[in-house]
């Protein structure tokens, strides 16, 4: 097992869009080899937070640290270069290309020069590597030559996840990974997430589906109206407690008790 040291820290991050304060005071800490769920009601700032971590948005204030070093991400490419990959909610796949091509989209491998210098692709190598990756992650698609459009929803999600994992050297961010899937397919993707964790990557998972969160997450961070309410180990809490924190009921109760 890899060490469980802290890989990513987000401290006092703020972000506003015009008059909307999406994040007022978000803190977040991610450890190696954990699945860390971010939960919260609509408008809690979950999406904003992961988009800041994946380089899509830039924080107005606060700090991001990777392995203890402060980092500034100007765009998703810089995040990817640091080993942070994102699986987007709307499956960012090119449907008319096959699974292997999607896995390598934007990172194609080329034949040796001179052909490679002209942009000729090493399709065999990419295919082989794609097959290995699918096997490693136990993703059952009959062939990596299959166009993505011909795959089922779960298989497509699996391809998207496989791409993130294949390239994510440190952190994989998953935005509602099962939102569009049926029961059986969701189970398949959750298995995949566990598989990835067991291989030592850190996973951030945003989800509305609390039973799923409780099924795979090691820790849970609750956001409410742009603030981090708390972070706790899944085994130390319950679904009811988390719902209470998401909606503010628990907070109100605590405040009433404390004052």
């Amino acid at each position: 097992m890899p060490d469980n040291g802290v890989i990513l820290e987000v401290e006092d991050v703020q972000k506003r869009f015009g008059r909307v304060e999406a994040l007022r005071d978000a803190d977040f800490e991610l450890r190696n080899g954990e699945v860390h769920a971010i939960v919260g009601d609509n408008g809690a700032g979950k999406s904003t937070l992961i988009k800041i971590i994946s380089g899509v948005y830039q924080a107005d204030a606060g700090e991001l640290r990777l392995d203890g070093e402060p980092i500034v991400l100007h765009n998703p490419r810089e995040a990817r270069q640091l080993g942070i990959e994102t699986v987007y909610q709307d499956l960012a796949l090119a449907d008319d290309l096959d699974a292997a091509a999607n896995l390598f989209l934007g990172r194609e491998e080329y034949l040796p020069p001179p052909l490679g210098s002209l942009g000729f692709l090493d399709r065999k190598a990419m295919r082989q590597r794609a097959e290995e990756e699918m096997r490693r992650l136990k993703i059952g698609i009959s062939s990596v030559d299959q166009r993505v459009v011909e795959l089922s929803g779960g298989q497509r999600q699996a391809v998207a996840v496989a791409r993130a994992i294949a390239w994510g050297r440190r952190i994989v961010i998953m935005d509602e990974p099962t939102a569009a899937l049926g029961v059986r397919e969701s189970a398949m993707v959750l298995e995949l997430i566990k598989e990835v964790r067991n291989q030592g990557l850190a996973i951030i998972m945003v989800s509305h589906n609390l039973p799923e969160v409780f099924a795979v997450a090691d820790r849970i961070t609750v956001l409410r109206i742009g603030r981090t309410i708390t972070t706790m180990a899944t085994k130390d809490t319950s679904l009811e407690a988390v719902v209470g924190m998401m909606t503010g009921a628990v907070e109100a109760a605590l405040r009433a008790e404390g004052s």
Binding site: P76, R77, R80, Y88, A92, L93, A94, D95, D96, L97, A101, L105, G106, R107, E108, L121
Partner: peptide, 19 residues
Amino acid sequence: GRYTSAIGSNDEASRRAGI
């Protein structure tokens, strides 16, 4: 050719993939 197909298939995905 591959980028041409990828863009026609899903330009946003291509952009996110760094094309």
